[in-house]
Nucleic acid binder design. Structure first.
Lengths: 145, 145
DNA sequence: CCATAAGATGCATAGTAAATACATCTTAAG
DNA sequence: CTTAAGATGTATTTACTATGCATCTTATGG
C-alpha cells in the first residue's frame, strides 16, 4: 500500500508554496530545489491548479502561488484530489468486482471503515499545520529566513 | 492507494477455509470457486503458511486448513503479513528517502498517524467477524449448508 | 512399491500503471 | 518581438504486480 509520487510531490509543492508566503515560485525552481523531474512536476502543478489549490500565472515573472491561505487547504482534500484510485480492493469498484461473495462479504465494510479512519486523520490537518515551524524548513530549502 | 491482489486473495482464501470449519480445502478447489489463477493462489497460500495462518498437508487427500481458530486470526495481522510494502511515501523508508526536508517534515508524522488509525480498525476485527453470518456466504460459494 | 494427487519452489513472461521525457503551443512582461 | 513562464498532448521507460510454466517433494491408496 503506497501513495503515488503524484500525491507526495503535490504535498511537497504545496509546502514550498506555503513557505513562500504569497510570493510566486516557478515549477523549475521547485523541481530543482527538491531534485525531482521538472516535467513530472508540471503535471502535478496542473492537477493542483484544476483542483483549485494553486493559481498559475503564465509568462515572464509568472509562476505558482497558493490559491487559498494554507489553513484553508486540507490535507485530506489534497490526497483525494491527487490519488486517482482509492479502491483498496477489487470489490470497491462495482465495475471491476468479480468476487463471488461480494454481496455478503463483510470485508468490504471493514476496509471502508478503515479508510474512513485514515481519511479522518488527514482531514483534521491543513497545510498550515505542516509549516507550523517554518524556520528549519526554510533553511533546508534554502529560502531566505 | 490500493492493496495488492495478494492481500485480497489471502483474505478470500482464509474466508473460504473458515467456512470449511476445519475440513481441508485444496488450492485448486478454492481457485476454481473464486475463478482466480491457481498458480497465483499457490504463492499466496505459501505466504499464509509461512506466516502461520494456515497448515498445509501435501499428498493425496491433502490441502489447507486454518492453523488457528478464526477468532484468533486478526485481519490487521494478515494485512501486515501479506502487504510487503506499507511505506506510504518515499520518506517512510530511510533507505529510499531523498527528500530534502525529511528531518523537519511534519507530513511523515501525519501519515504515520493516519496509518495507525487505519490499522487500528483492522486490528479490532478477526476472521471470525468476517464469517459471522456464514449461511449466505456458504450459499454463494456453493458449500453444502 | 508405484501411480497419483496434493503442496513447494524457482524461473520466466506478460500486463499495467506510474514515472519520466520530449515537443509544441499559449500567454504575458519588458 | 524576444524571452520566460505555464499548458497540453504524446511517447517512452521502468517497475511492479500478476500470471504461467516446469519441476521437485511429499503423502496416500491400491
Amino acid at each position: 500500500m503506497r501513495l503515488t509520487l503524484h500525491t507526495d510531490y503535490a504535498l511537497r509543492l504545496l509546502t514550498y508554496l506555503a513557505l513562500k508566503r504569497g510570493e510566486v515560485a516557478t515549477i523549475r525552481e521547485v523541481a530543482e530545489t527538491y531534485g525531482i523531474s521538472r516535467n513530472h512536476l508540471v503535471k502535478i502543478a496542473d492537477g493542483l491548479r484544476h483542483a483549485g489549490f494553486v493559481d498559475a500565472q503564465r509568462g515572464r515573472g509568472g509562476g505558482l502561488r497558493l490559491a487559498r491561505p494554507a489553513h484553508a487547504i486540507g490535507i485530506g482534500a489534497v490526497v483525494r484530489a491527487m490519488e486517482e484510485d482509492l479502491n483498496l480492493v477489487e470489490c470497491f469498484d462495482p465495475q471491476t468486482d468479480r468476487c463471488r461473495i461480494g454481496p455478503s462479504c463483510r470485508l468490504k465494510h471493514l476496509l471502508h471503515e478503515a479508510l474512513d479512519a485514515w481519511m479522518a486523520v488527514l482531514d483534521k490537518a491543513t497545510l498550515a499545520d505542516l509549516v507550523e515551524r517554518p524556520k528549519p524548513l526554510r533553511r533546508l530549502l534554502e529560502l531566505s529566513a
